[in-house]
């Protein structure tokens, strides 16, 4: 059973989203996603300043087994990326909700309404299994 914190938002492509006080959002991949990927050995992050559309490819996470795209859960501008993942990609396995990938400034805050809550994401994971 994977860990799905109640204070985060989610999308069906297995990214988690934390709404920050300053209006930005922080994005990572879920415990369920890291578990399915296996040992993460490489993370490719978007460039700061890049404009991403909702659902656009934002980066890549590679495990020993396979490469998997990371998607922008909402449209926005990349305002920060977690450079520490370059040297320690295994953090994604160890602490999936600490090992954030990038922060977005939403282009349309109304899109936040479309994100899943923990129960909604739990339903997605159950359907996957």
């Amino acid at each position: 059973m994977s860990n799905i914190p109640a204070d985060l938002r989610y999308v069906a492509s297995h990214e988690w989203i934390r709404l920050e006080a300053d209006g930005s959002v922080t994005v990572g991949i879920t415990d369920h996603a890291q578990e399915a990927l296996g040992d993460v050995v490489y993370v490719e992050l978007p460039e700061v300043g890049k404009q991403l559309a909702n659902g656009q490819e934002a980066g890549v996470v590679e495990s020993v087994k396979a490469a998997s795209d990371i998607y922008a859960p909402i449209g926005g501008t990349v305002v920060a990326v977690n450079e520490a993942l370059a040297d320690a990609p295994e953090q994604v396995n160890g602490e999936p909700y600490e090992a954030w990938f990038f922060k977005l400034q939403p282009s349309d805050p109304a899109e936040l309404e479309g994100l899943l809550d923990a129960a909604g994401y739990q339903a997605v994971c159950s359907a996957d299994a």
Partner: peptide, 8 residues
Amino acid sequence: PLHYGSQV
């Protein structure tokens, strides 16, 4: 078996 926890 693919792995029993961590392949690495």
